[in-house]
Write a protein that binds this DNA or RNA. Structure first.
Lengths: 164, 164
DNA sequence: GAAAGATTGTTGTTGACGACAACAATTGCC
DNA sequence: GGCAATTGTTGTCGTCAACAACAATCTTTC
């Protein structure tokens, strides 16, 4: 655009007299402080990033973990039931299960009772893998405790119990 | 509709007589209960949906609201500073500001001190609009109180204050 | 004072994710 | 038997985070 590029300017030191306020600490949030949604959002981002990192070696994301956990605790569920329970779109669950089935962690068994639906089960490797995932998830949960405090985490779980 | 699915009262029963466990209430979550991330995620989805619905008439989403709030409280900030403060990618902020600028709520002023950066300001309409947004956001916050309880919300804000 | 490196805004891509819509196969209902 | 509803699937669209590359500009360093 502006092809003229004579940059020989007298030194305008922006960092001398006028504070530039580029540091996050100095910037006020005004009304944002006191908004539950903002705090929850930031916390959720942090917690997911820690979960993803902690379970990075096994390459399991939070949603995948929740699917495996529910299937593990309730073998034979249909995709619709899992989707409803976890608040996932059934269209989305298709891809999630495709991935998990490809990794031999889950298998779709054609249901005898309802030939439209699939009964979801963990494979043998899925069971042992989930056990490992749970250990790593527990480690992640300890990170949360370390971040906000043990009793704060317990308090939080109690407050939000109605949403699980 | 996702998180707090309305209960289906009549127990569904397959033709063969075995309970089908399609209702969410009957499905256990096993290890998922006790995971802070899961509860926080579900709560965050609920809270954002209520925010979007409550500010639906003015068509303002949570992220847009946070950007407007920070600019309103700190006029003249650069895009980089806003992005850092809110934990948004600067690439993402470009589109957000494009939209807000198109709606005449925000203006990008070429900075004198640093010709690379833009000083962000609310327009006059932006100021009055933000005032209205804040009233609606306060209404949303009352919804949160009604959902989890007044002192629970306060407790939550205290616990998560470090993430803002 | 000029070269080298860092920063700012921008554009683009990728992938996870939610919301919808349409479809075939199957089931339930009347 | 016929018709509406359900289940899994495929596809599209839009939001959002994470990167990468780039031009313009600033800062640092020699």
């Amino acid at each position: 655009m502006t092809a003229t590029a004579p940059r020989t300017f007298p030194r305008k030191r922006a960092s001398n007299g006028t504070a530039r306020r580029t540091d996050a600490d100095e910037i006020g949030l005004d009304a944002l402080v006191g908004h539950a949604g903002y705090a929850v959002r930031r916390f959720q981002i942090w917690i997911f990033q820690d979960f993803i990192k902690t379970l990075g070696d096994v390459d399991i994301r939070p949603t995948q973990y929740s699917v495996l956990t529910v299937i593990g605790a309730n073998p034979g569920l249909s995709q619709m039931a899992v989707a409803k329970r976890l608040g996932i779109e059934r269209a989305r669950l298709v891809h999630l299960l495709d991935s998990l089935e490809q990794r031999k962690l889950v298998k779709r068994v054609k249901s005898k009772a309802d030939r439209r639906s699939h009964a979801l089960h963990l494979t043998i490797q899925g069971e042992t893998a989930l056990a490992k995932f749970k250990r790593l998830a527990a480690e992640h949960e300890r990170h949360v405790e370390a971040k906000i405090g043990k009793e704060n985490r317990a308090q939080l779980l109690k407050i939000l119990a109605g949403f699980t």
